[in-house]
Amino acid sequence: MNFSIAVMQAFDGLSLFSVLLLMALGLAIIFGLMGVINMAHGELMTLGAYMTYLTASGFEKYAPNLMGIYILVAIPVAFLASFALGYALERLFVQWFYRRPLDTLLATWGLSLILQQAYRTIFGSGEVSVPLPSWLNGPWNLNSTIQIPLNRVFIIALAAGVTLGVYVLLNRTRSGLRIRAVTQNRAMSAAVGINTRKVDALTFALGSGLAGIAGCVFTMIGSTNPGTGQLYIVNAFIVVVFGGVQSLMGTVLSAFSIAQSQSWLEYFMSGSMAKMTMLAIVIVVLYFKPSGLFTTRVRS
């Protein structure tokens, strides 16, 4: 293996890392911080993907000369749509299940089936895809042997930006302070005057909105169909559990290690074997560290 292949291989892992990270961030908030198992999280990603598709179609029809920047509009659109759906879901549905985690799992799975069928009814069961803006098309030639696809660079930058945003929001703002307060001690937070139900709804909506952004990114690397969310949901859960719930940094590191190992394994064996080996490694590691790799001790 020479240097160029090593660089491209590492880059492959890096771009897989950013996709996994975007997928898992929303879940890290909903599952990790709030402790809610939302099996419909994948469908919130799909919503983001379909919103991107709608935005692209809208631009194509009404402003074809602005097609280059549609993706910049689609990201907030996807975020807001999933944010709104997440907010509605929490208010109307999820909030009644907070004390029954296993029931939440089944009920939200039912919800995910309903959403899938709704997408199928609205958008059809076929694949839809969006054109990449021209400035993201094609490779970036570092030198004559190392080529890096531009859309992947964009995804990596986006993942970095979103992660930074979430970090700042949670750790440097008053809303973030409230979110952390409620997740750490609900009763005490309520006693000092925090409206915990409002914080719950907004936290859930924030996680959902992040899923929307992940969905938007999916359209840049593949096509979307009503069942797309199902493909990613288990992986997202694995990333969060592996990293250790209640730790955003854990999610980042976990996504990084899973992505890098998988893309290196793929270099040495077939894709499915690499995936399987990776899952097996995760399960073995979880066996020895059941609370995840990178846990910070918190009082329960």
Partner: peptide, 18 residues
């Protein structure tokens, strides 16, 4: 509880991938 459910879910995925 929930963690067992997720681990078994991951195993089911592994099994089909295999």
């Amino acid at each position: 509880g929930v963690y067992f459910a997720i681990v078994t879910l991951a195993l089911a995925l592994t099994f089909t991938v295999l």
